[in-house]
Simulated assay, not measured.
Amino acid sequence: MPTDSEGVARLYGNMAEYESTRLATHPMERELTLRSIRHWLAASVSAPPTAASSSRRRIADVGGGPGKLAFALADDGCHVDLVDLSPGLIELARAEQQERAAAAAGSRPLLASIAVGNALGGPPAALPQGSYDAVLLLGPLYHLLDEAERRRAVENACRLAKPRTGLVFCAFVSKEAHLRDIAVRDPARIVEQRDFYAKYLLDGHYQRSQASHPVQSFHTSSRYVRDFFARHFVDTADLVELRSTEGILGGGLDAKLVDAGDEIVQAWADLLFEKYSVNEEHLGCADHLLAVLRRR
C-alpha cells in the first residue's frame, strides 16, 4: 500500500508541539541514539582530514523532525543538514536556528541547512550524494507500510553516504512498543479488536482513520530488521549493529529519569548502552530498534 505522505505530514503537523519535547521526556532514546551515532563516527575508518579539508563530520538527518538530534550533533562540531516531510516541524527547527543565530556570535552552532523533503523522493538537490559520514533515517521507516518503499528510503540514504565508510542509521518501531502501550492505556482493545490484532501481529501494519488525518504506521521485530537488510542490501551495505535505544527501559520506564539530573541520566545511559541494548534478549524490551549500516 503506497504511503500517504501528505497524511503523515499532517499527522506530525498536528503533533508538532509534542514532537518538539518528545526526546526531552524520553531521555534513554535520546542518549542511546546519540551514543550510537557518536560511537560509530569515532570508529569510522574515513580518511583523516588534511589541511585542505574540513575536520567536521558531515551528517544528513533525513526525517529529523524539529532537529533535536541534529542540533545536538551540531553542538558536537558536525556539519548537519536537516530534512523533514512536515513543514510544521521544519518551522520549529528554523525557529531554533534563529534563536541560536541571535545568541552571542559562535556560542551556539547552527545547522548547515534546513529543508522540507521526502525520504522516498530521493535526496534533495542540496544534499550531495556520496559525501556524508553518516545519514540518519530515524523517523521515515515508522510510516512506510510497503517494503518496497522502506527499501527505497534506505537506498536513498545509502546514496548520500560516503562509499566504503559512510554510515546509515535506520530506526524502527517494535511491535512490543505498541502492545505495551495498549496494555497500559486500553487493555480491552486486544479482545474487542481481535481480528485487527491478529493481522497486526502478522504484518505490523497499524492503520487508523481519524477526522483530520490517517494514522499509518509500521511496527516490526529484530528478526525482520535483520532479514530485511540481508534480502535487499547484501551487496550495498553491511549491518554492523542492531541496538535498542531504550535498553531495558522501553514502555516509558525511563520517565523518572527526566527530573533526576544529568549525572544520573548519564550513568543510566552508560549502563544501558554498555550492558543492556545489543544482546538479543534485551531487544524485545525496546520501543525502537536502531540498525547501523556501513555502505560498501
Rank of each mutant, 00 (worst) to 15 (best):
E6K: 06
G7M: 08
L11I: 00
Y12K: 01
E19M: 08
R22A: 01
A24V: 04
H26P: 01
R38F: 00
A42R: 10
A43C: 05
V45R: 15
S53A: 10
R58E: 11
D61V: 00
D61I: 02
D75G: 06
D76V: 01
D76R: 06
H79Q: 08
L85K: 03
L85I: 04
S86W: 04
L89V: 02
R94G: 09
R94S: 14
A102I: 10
R108N: 02
L110P: 09
V116W: 11
L120W: 13
G121K: 09
Q129P: 06
Q129R: 13
V135P: 07
V135Y: 09
V135I: 08
L136N: 08
L144F: 12
E147H: 09
R150G: 07
V154C: 15
C158G: 11
A161D: 11
P163Q: 13
L179Y: 12
L179N: 11
D181G: 14
D181A: 15
I190E: 06
V191I: 08
L201T: 09
Y206M: 13
S209F: 09
P214L: 11
F218G: 08
R223F: 07
R223Q: 10
E241L: 07
I248N: 09
A255R: 15
K256V: 12
K256C: 12
A260Y: 01
A260E: 00
G261W: 00
D262S: 04
E263V: 03
Q266V: 04
K275W: 02
N279S: 10
E280N: 12
E281S: 11
G284K: 01
L293D: 07
